[in-house]
Design a protein around this nucleic acid. Structure first.
Length: 133
RNA sequence: CUACAAACCCGGGUCAUCGCUUCGAGUUAAUCGGGGAGGAAAGUCCGGACAGCAUAGGGCAACUUACCAUGUGUUAAACAUGGCUUCUUAUUUAUAAGAAAGAGAUAGUGCCGCAGAAAAUAACCGUUCCGCUUGGCGGAGUAAGGGUGAAAAUGUGAGGUAAAAGCUCACGUUCUGUUAUGGUAACAUGGCAGAAGGGUAAACCUUAGGUGCUGCAAUGCCACAUAAAGAAGCGUUUGAGAGCUGCCCGUUCAAGCUUCAGGGUAGGCAGCAUAGAUAAAUGAUGACUUAAACAGAAUCCGGCUUACGAGGUUUGUAGUUUU
RNA sequence: GGCCCCGUAGCUUAACUGAAUAGAGUAUCUGACUACGGAUCAGAAGGUUCCAGGUUUGAAUCCUGGCGGGGUCA
């Protein structure tokens, strides 16, 4: 099994599910990224994740594509601890990363931010486990 | 060789690691192999294919095209080559370069501020003649002159007259009709007859040609869900309303239709591709080398416009050097 | 993705059927009134009419192309 993969099954796609996560999901933001997430009982993969950029901040389609690629790339390289934690505690998760800054980010900076986001998500899982136990 | 202009071409490459999408092989899987953004993919300014709309029928309206020939485009939009006409610039003054939404103002209607007598069937001043009172007033003729204006009624000269006037003549200018010659044609040159009336059609419009309307969120199918409920209005052969056009006609269907408030669903297949999805792939990092810019497909094709990098090729113009 | 509409002072707008100083209200500034403010009165300033080109003697207005903003259709 590939470790760093990010294929179709792991992507959050359905319009309905996205509406749900935006209205009822929990949020926190690690600048310049805002994270929507929601724990869920039944799902065909451990995590479903999506990325997005507002047209309000970036007019050009090239810039939006670039940021979405960066977000996917950083999530792909940093997601391993989150997966381990989730399979250990038998939870399923939906995440959506929304980019909220006005200018183009550096790859290295975004990678560090993603690391902290993943850490925070792991903490959330631990908290949830403690609350149940 | 240098500079400028136009047209066409190109739109980074190699290696390593980790990935995405699609197709094929593979019993599922693991894995392996093949394909994977642009000249503008953009703007949506045009045209077509294709699809639906009763058979896409007639008229008005609306939109659109507009020098000529040939070619491409099945038509159209548009483009290419060559030519014609007009305008601008330059000088060698009869050529060169560039530009043109380049049919019609003698079919009709409208408009032309201020200034000016007058802005289009021109008599305010002036000028000439006649009459009366004789300061001057009235009538008639007259576009030679009048500082304006973007534009002032065919230019110059002569005759002519009371004064004038294309009123007449000569040389011109422009237009209309007709005709001869050259040219496929636009048109050019000449003869004859007639005319002289400003501009504006990116004002209405006229002439000739073209366009039925709506658009892949079209359209067909599968799955899922709900409210076949409520209120108001119109109507059932004396025809409401509908058949996707702004109106009318013709024609077809016709027992339900319209509006209000509210509720449900919005997942997929075909359309759809020798790149091709359906929250939407074509990437990231490192190394070397370069000038790498503008920029990311959603039914497809063609044209136009806009954004942009370093060069190359060809043609033209100008300059310099050598022979 | 398709189809429509709109850009005028800081803000809300008029003139869009070509005509020369682009007009109002509000906000701003100055003065008057008041012991001081508000309200009121008087005056001033503020416009590349989104940008570029064209038609015309003349363009906010007509035409063409850009830029920006908004609406609608499953």
């Amino acid at each position: 099994m590939k470790i760093f993969s990010y294929d179709k099954k792991e992507k959050l796609k359905s319009r309905k599910q996205l509406q749900k996560i935006f209205t009822t999901g929990k949020t926190f933001s690690i600048f310049p990224v805002k994270v929507f997430f929601q724990f869920i009982d039944e799902q065909d993969s451990v995590v479903k994740a999506g990325v997005g950029v507002s047209k309000k901040y970036f007019k050009k389609a090239v810039d939006r594509n670039y940021i979405k690629r960066l977000l996917r790339e950083t999530y792909r390289t940093e997601k391993v601890p989150l997966h381990n934690q989730l399979s250990a505690s038998n939870k399923k998760l939906k995440i959506f990363f929304l980019f909220v800054d006005g200018h183009l980010p550096e790859h290295i900076l975004l990678q560090q931010k993603m690391k902290t986001i993943i850490d925070k998500l792991c903490n959330e899982i631990e908290k949830l486990n403690e609350a149940i136990s």
